[in-house]
Design a protein around this nucleic acid. Structure first.
Length: 481
RNA sequence: GGCGGCGUGGCCGAGUGGUUUAGGCAAGGGCCUGCAAAGCCCUGUACAGCGGUUCGAUUCCGCUCGCCGCCUCCA
């Protein structure tokens, strides 16, 4: 049984899908008005990981993610750049896909855009008005928070609490200052769509209520996003969906990722204190960035620092180095297939391999990746010991190492690591390096260590690290220096 | 002010009512090596503070201090 932290109840609960064996999940994606920062990326990498894990555990996962491609910021940006709002959205969608791809995130099963669901939203808004949950005023439509008794249940606050906050400016059009926009009338030159209330565009929150239920149905299994979306965004989504359908729940489990901080402050596009993901992916190995994103609990907030990114790089390269070492030691006996599924309901009697079992135990518990990483590191230590000690010509020892390597590949693949640098390059590169190493071995045999060291030094400059072992030299792609 | 969370060894970061160490990074010592690199072994005696519950608390409760998030667009 997989257990997850559910924001609505505030508890760790058993993940019980509405339909056995299937998980439907919806994750709030970016508003595409500029590039994503590393905080956005961490969150999305985590939901990618959650999806991968659920699939690994045997669920058939339907993963829907949205692009908010119409909103004030996009319009602002379009005016600034002198291009159409649509062009702005397209541009940053591409940028998003590029950088998330680099981080090893898989494409959602369904990618939805607000602008492609305007009619659905108009219909939903009409329905809300009909049900007395919303009202029109001057071309705008507002959701009436007082009409939805459950308002505040996700973020655990009451209307009274919020009023005390005093931070929301009352609008003459609103009956209650906390009422939020379902439909905004368009000003001149703004992108707009026809509606019964005049030309305009949807409010931000309605798109997610409409698109999630359209593709996944009411009562889908997991709704995810950053913790900053709890209020008002997700609170409003619940109000809209449940208000419209007259039933609950909108979503069965709410998962929220912790924020990335800059120093002692939240990284935020509006604060301007962000680090672009594209820049980080440029400067660090993308897999190391993924390691960084996944090394702590998804719920924790983390402070961004290059030092931590460097730690992650080192830790990740320990795995990469092990992979080449193990392959070198095993040669043709290295495993090629890897296990990609460990269903929760798998037949009893077939215990999981040791380290896989540890990782699964951790991950079943609200995706405790740190426990799983620890298991992988312990696995690597044991395997390195066996490479070291190693009479690897003994079949028994080889078999042990091979088994460990299988577990390693299974687990790292589960986390989305493929270690491209260990297999990077063409056969020609490999052949060239092998040839140089032959020359170097000749030199070493002649005790011409100067020559041998010169070759090694040159190779490391180029980015190829050479390590001598009793079984001959091995090499790997490495940072130079 | 309301709601939520956090404070673990130099840093990052799990976890637990007690007897055996999370893990990683960094540091020091050692082994291995022609020299390296990689790896392996060893070392550091951590749980903000103060009370309480308990035979026993880092782990439960209360308080104090400090920090952060949400309450406005935001992953």
């Amino acid at each position: 049984m997989i257990r997850v932290h559910d924001t609505l109840t505030g508890k760790i609960v058993d993940l019980e899908p509405a339909r056995p064996g299937r998980i439907s999940m919806y994750v709030c994606g970016p508003t595409v008005y500029n590039q994503i920062h590393i905080g956005n990326a961490r969150s999305m990498v985590w939901f990618d990981m959650i999806r991968r894990y659920l699939r690994y555990r045997g669920f058939e996962v339907m993963y829907v993610q949205n692009y908010t491609d119409v909103d004030d910021k996009i319009i602002e940006r379009a005016n600034l750049e002198g291009i159409a709002a649509e062009a702005v959205a397209n541009k940053y969608e591409h940028a998003y896909e590029l950088v998330m791809g680099a981080l090893g995130a898989e494409q959602p099963d369904i990618l939805v855009r607000a602008t492609q669901h305007i009619e659905d939203m108009v219909a939903a808004i009409k329905g809300l008005i009909d049900r007395g949950m919303a009202y029109e005023s001057g071309g705008n439509v507002w959701f009436s928070v007082e009409a939805f008794p459950g308002y505040g249940k996700l973020s655990n606050r009451s209307l009274d609490d919020m009023r005390a906050g005093e931070r929301i400016e009352p609008s003459e059009h609103k009956r209650n200052p906390l009422d939020f926009a379902l439909w905004k009338s368009a000003k001149e030159e703004e992108p707009s769509w026809p509606s019964p209330w005049g030309p305009g565009r949807p409010g931000w929150h309605i798109e997610c209520s409409v698109m999630s239920t359209k593709y996944l149905g009411m009562g889908f299994d997991i709704h995810g996003g950053g913790s900053d979306l709890i209020f008002p965004h997700h609170e409003n989504e619940i109000a809209q969906a449940e208000g419209l359908m007259g039933s609950e729940p909108f979503a069965r489990n709410w998962l929220h990722a912790g924020m990335v901080q800059m120093e002692a402050e939240k990284m935020s596009k509006s604060l301007g204190n962000f680090v672009l993901t594209a820049e980080i992916v440029e400067r660090f190995d993308p897999e190391a960035v993924r390691y960084w994103a996944l090394m702590g609990s998804y719920r924790s907030q983390v402070t961004f620092s290059e030092a931590t990114l460097n730690d992650a790089t080192q830790a990740h390269s320990r795995w990469a180095t092990f992979l080449t070492a193990a392959r070198h030691a095993l040669g043709d006996d290295a495993p090629t297939d890897l296990v990609t599924h460990r269903p929760v309901d798998a037949a009893e009697g077939e215990p999981l391999p040791q380290y896989v079992a540890r990782a699964v135990e951790g991950l079943d518990d609200d995706f405790n990746s740190a426990a799983a990483f620890a298991a992988i590191h312990d696995l690597v230590r044991e395997a390195n010991r066996s490479i070291e000690g190693a009479q690897l010509n003994e079949p028994e020892a080889k078999k042990t190492l091979s088994g460990l390597l299988e577990q390693f590949l299974e687990l790292t693949h589960l986390f989305g690591f493929t270690f491209p640098r260990t297999t990077e390059g063409t056969e020609i590169l490999g052949a060239l390096v092998e040839y140089l190493l032959e020359l170097r071995e000749d030199a070493r045999k002649d005790k011409s260590f100067d020559r041998a060291d010169a070759i090694r030094a040159r190779l490391i400059e180029i980015g190829v690290a050479v390590e001598d072992t009793p079984a001959g030299p091995r090499w790997r792609i490495a940072d130079n220096g």
